[in-house]
Design a protein around this nucleic acid. Sequence first.
DNA 1: CCCTGGTGTCATTGT
DNA 2: ACACAATGACACCAG
Length: 676
Amino acid sequence: MSVDGPRTSVFTFQSAVHSHHVLRSLEELRQKELLCDVTVEVERRSFRAHSSVLASCSGYFYTRLTNHSRPNLTVRLPDEVTVEGFEPLLQFAYTAKLHFTKENILEIHRCAEFLGFQNLDKACFEFLIPKFSDGSGTSKKVKSKSKSQASHEKSQAICSPNGQNPETEEDRVPQDASTVMQAASITSFAESPEDCPPISNDKEMQLDLSPLYARSTSYHMGDGQDQFCLQNCGPQLPSSSLAASEVCPYLSISSTSDNEKLHSTAAGCDGDILAMEDEFQKELAVEMHCEPPTDKDLNIASITEGHFDQSEGLMPSTDCTQLCPLNSAQSSGVLDSISGAPDLSNIGTEDNRVFDSNEQTFSELTPKDCSTKRSMVEREVAEHLAKGFWPDLSSTLNEPLPLDSIDQSSAGNGSDFHWLKHLDLGAAPDDCPFLRDLSSSDRHTSGGDTLSKEDTGDSPCMSPINSRENSECESDGDCTQCGSSEQVQEVDLPFPVEQISSMTRRAFLQMLKREQLTPEQLEFVQDVRRRSKNRMAAQRCRKRKLDCIYRLEGEIKKLRIEKEKLLQDHNQLKLGIEDVRQNLSGLCQSLCMDASPQSEQLQVLARYVSSDCPTSVLLTPMASPSLAGPDQDTHGNSTLDTFLADTCPEGDTVALSLPTAFLQDNVQSTVSDPAP
DNA sequence: CCCTGGTGTCATTGT
DNA sequence: ACACAATGACACCAG
């Protein structure tokens, strides 16, 4: 162990809120028309925008705007681009959210293709358009436009190579053949016969393509909110669990399979969470695809059932399901899939509850309901939208992590839930309010009756301690850290093993009383608890020991420095003493030349020397005694002043030779111990 | 193969 | 008497 080199750790803080914040700020700037440097003219309407934003979202704008450096550029879009199609795209560029209706989806798609808007095709149009086209109801305007557009775009495809129209100010981005073909196919789609009842026109969907990592923490927490999560989950959520927080910092996963339990889990949220500010709530509503009432759009349906419009405040504002994006459309599907419930499509049939945005009420949906077909299509669309988010996520979390239980339980939708594999639910659940909820929900779930083996073994909500494959001690055959998995399975505990050590004694005893364990189970549980406690004690002990060692090493360092300082002082004093000795011996020699001082006089002399003597006195020991002993009284001088005044004129040096033994016995002792 | 550091567990002791 | 914490000793593992 060495403390020689200071340990330097480099930390990186990556804000998941930043990108979202920047985008939102840009949108605000756009709305206030601040710092806008480009005007886009579409069908006689002008849109102020930031060239950098447009260029970063659209290939068309990139080509046009990067070729012009002049400020306040006006870009007039060709007739192919309509306000109907362009406006949502512009909004998408600034918000990552695409508002669309069945009517304008084709137009948006056409404009998006023309303008080269990225991130929309696969996630949106390839699925949505056929769906909506099946239902038809597309505006004739769109149809006619689409038809003419196909041929028009073919002509556009042969634009000048740099995408600029040499004849007009309207620059064109070259359209590749595939784009044209796609547009043509859409046209044919739109013209396909309508064999389905028309879908209601009053729905507007919202596609949010903002990255999930941003969505999860984009509650406009600001610093404080970031701190909120860090404080609550921070150190307890190591790298693996970071992913969990990326997905949803407020994630409360329950192993329950019905929505009711999910709801109860959410209802058990921490008061801190419930006390979020209004802005937070409002922003959250936006994040959850639920538009605030200020939205100018029509009745906005949430993209899936159970994803309720909050615009009228129908749901309790403190409902924790609002606080977690995953506790909505996605989460219900995710959670149900995890818990082995039927897939998403079954949720609606099980619950038969949809939210009618027109009446702002829940209504029981009967098979005969005329809106059934509508909701089926919308549900399908919503599912697609919901699923569309997962590839984004899983691509960012592509670290392979074995979690067979999830794969098994989510059989059909397994690929959609890779992110769940990163949830480290075993990481000190009691220290994170969200994971604490999990624990409590687990308890609630188990309730009085015992979980089945499948439940304990396969539930992804169970700690790795209980799931053999992902146990921390998977490498250790005789893992005694948490009881071997085999043992766990043998004793078949009705509660997670990790609870055993984290519980207080009182709770532990209560649980033992409640669960009516067999002697075998009891022994196992107590053994696990004892070892766990001892393990933690050992860790504490070692930490203390290390701290002690560090502290002692620090003290040793300090003492060494002090010692060196004292040695230096000692050496200086030694030199000083040497000087004094020399001076004193000189003085003595001088004295002995002239007179024989008494020992008393010598003592006074020495005292004088040790004080601020104006006259340098040199005492040199004599090799042989030339002086009578101290008891001899041959000289009458009694005071040094008189003595010095006589023998040592001011400024002169008096050498005094004395026997070494005499000096040692008298002078030195006097010098080293001067009288006060 | 040995050394070293980290960790879990057991036995013991003190509180 | 009991539970618990602290700690020394030992074993095991990984680097």
